[in-house]
Design a protein around this nucleic acid. Structure first.
Lengths: 177, 177
DNA sequence: CGACACATGTAACACGTTACATGATTTG
DNA sequence: CAAATCATGTAACGTGTTACATGTGTCG
């Protein structure tokens, strides 16, 4: 629902056309979430189909046809429920790293420790890269904010990997003794 | 790809059938990620189609037909690349909370502060709930591990919301002065 | 002129998800 | 016996994603 909701949110600031929406989406997300233009059009079609958005052909001065998409009342209502929605109502989204570690644990502690070690070193590298990115992106608010998010998450995931390892080690010790 | 990879990982421990796989998936993920049985069968079909899994009709003692799915060599190879895959190769998955805050910021700091406040209070409640869940799930390793993950993430998200707020406040101050 | 950004779209496919239908077996 | 659990599956739909086709305008 992310693309859908994102486009709806952008359209709430005023009518726009497909290509523009793609650029705005990428600008707002600090260039981190790239969008294939095609997807903007397919998603806009679906929003029209659902009555959340209206299309209007807007012939500009030079006689070129451009489609302008505008949010409808129904669209504004759905957007409102999106703003207000909070996690906790639904099961947390499945996460690749979490799933991988859980599956590894079910395969046996040995396998799990290997996976944890590898993921940790990759995550550490990624974290450093993102800290560098953050330093060079301090001018752009959107980029700074999303990089904050990615960094905070990566730090949390690293802490979690440590916790998992500790749990596994403790388990191994208690079963050996 | 989560369900697909998860089933493949479970099948790597030995052949099994659909219903069993559903139960195992839920057990391994501490009951946090519920799976509709139907999806197991559709996903297994697709794994067969792609040659990663073989089906074999296994007639048990009482004459009841059961299908047993087994991972193939190709399946083991794909699973291997899954274990080794790390983030950083791909753009981070789009996250609902992150997107919401970014979109809110693009709508204006006022709107963003409201969204942040509301999400923070919901997240705080969710975090407390999960800490309670964690205390009562200490016996089940899988549940304990996934709850660790959800708790660590929630804490990180809360910190991030604070960071966002601080950035917005700083921005407002510097523009007023 | 050629490359590049702007601009619109379609067809095809992937995965996730649910609702529904069907039947056997087990258990209170 | 009735309800729950075990067990298998299909049809339909939703979103995300890409590859491709097409055309205009602009700038070096």
């Amino acid at each position: 629902m992310s693309v859908r909701a994102g486009l709806l949110a952008l359209l709430d600031a005023g009518p726009s056309h497909g290509y523009q929406l793609k650029s705005e989406f990428e600008a707002v997300t600090g260039g981190v979430w790239v969008l294939n233009v095609g997807q903007v059009y397919t998603t806009l079609d679906r929003l029209c189909r659902d009555g959340l958005v209206d299309v209007e052909i807007h012939t500009d001065e030079s006689g070129v046809d451009q489609k302008r998409y505008a949010i409808t009342a129904a669209g504004r209502e759905e957007l409102g429920t999106w703003w207000d929605a909070t996690p906790g109502d639904e099961p947390p989204p499945r996460d690749e790293l979490q799933l991988k570690v859980l599956m590894a644990i079910s395969r046996g502690p040995g396998h799990a420790l290997g996976v944890i070690t590898r993921q940790r070193s990759a995550l550490t590298a990624l974290l450093q890269q993102r800290r560098r990115d953050a330093r060079s992106a301090s001018g752009d608010l959107a980029a700074a904010v999303i990089l904050d998010a990615l960094i905070t998450r990566a730090e949390a995931d690293l802490r979690w990997l440590d916790l998992c390892e500790a749990r596994l080690v403790r388990l191994a010790e208690s079963s050996t003794r």
